[in-house]
Amino acid sequence: MKYWLIKSEPGSFSIDDLARAPRKTTCWDGVRNYQARNMLRDEMKRGDLAFFYHSNSEPPGIVGIVEIVREGYPDHTAFDPDDHHFDARSDPESPRWYMVDVKLVDKFERLLSLRELKEYAGDQLAGFQLLARGNRLSVMPVSAPHWKFINSISKAK
């Protein structure tokens, strides 16, 4: 099993939106970065877990956990000219963009803020990709020790 962190702007799609989705499950579409796409397409496997992170919010932070319930498949929003994720260069015969399906596992009682996570950057979260300067990826791997530590502090306070 691998662990991940996936980001979404709560104004576009929040953890509460996922909680209201049928079976608390939805496709994770709209990723338009090749490095993140490769992780969705090639590395995320059914049963993997991911932190759900609210980005571009005040404050940003981890709000829960999702499970990958369907492995990477072509992102149909890239082919729809009426969708804001449309990519005219993407071809259904040779898809450029991929997505996975996720299911809500746990909504945290509290937001685990980026500021709080940064408090541990030199210690338990040293090397955590989210805390790297200039990191803007919407999908990133999380090491098992980082996963365990973040889960432990999500229940504290």
Rank of each mutant, 00 (worst) to 15 (best):
V31A: 02
A126C: 08
Q35T: 10
R136E: 07
N56D: 04
A21Y: 13
R41Q: 15
I65F: 05
R70N: 11
A50S: 05
A19V: 09
E116P: 00
S8T: 09
I150H: 05
F51T: 03
W147M: 03
R136M: 06
G134I: 04
D42P: 03
F86C: 08
R89N: 14
E93W: 07
A144E: 13
I150C: 02
V100N: 14
N151H: 06
D87T: 01
H84W: 15
D87E: 00
P145E: 03
F149E: 04
P60G: 05
L111S: 06
D17K: 09
Y53E: 05
Y120Q: 15
I153A: 00
K7W: 08
A88R: 14
P59G: 12
E109H: 10
W147Q: 02
F79C: 05
A50D: 05
A78G: 02
M39G: 11
T26S: 14
D42R: 12
N135T: 14
A88P: 13
Q129K: 15
D16Y: 15
T26M: 12
E67V: 03
S57L: 00
L104S: 02
V100H: 08
Q35G: 02
G72L: 02
S152W: 06
D87K: 01
V66E: 09
V66P: 07
T26Q: 12
K118C: 00
V142Q: 06
V63Q: 12
R32Y: 08
D75K: 08
K118Q: 10
E71P: 01
G122E: 13
V139D: 11
D83R: 03
Y34G: 01
R96Q: 03
D42Y: 11
K107V: 08
D123K: 13
V69F: 10
R32W: 09
Y98C: 00
G61N: 03
S143F: 07
R37C: 09
W147T: 03
S152P: 04
R89W: 09
R136D: 05
P145N: 01
R133L: 02
K155W: 08
S12Q: 07
P145F: 02
R20E: 13
R46G: 04
R37N: 14
F13S: 00
Y73T: 06
V69P: 02
R46C: 07
F108H: 06
Q35S: 05
H84R: 14
I62W: 07
V100G: 05
Y34M: 08
E71Y: 03
V139K: 13
S154H: 01
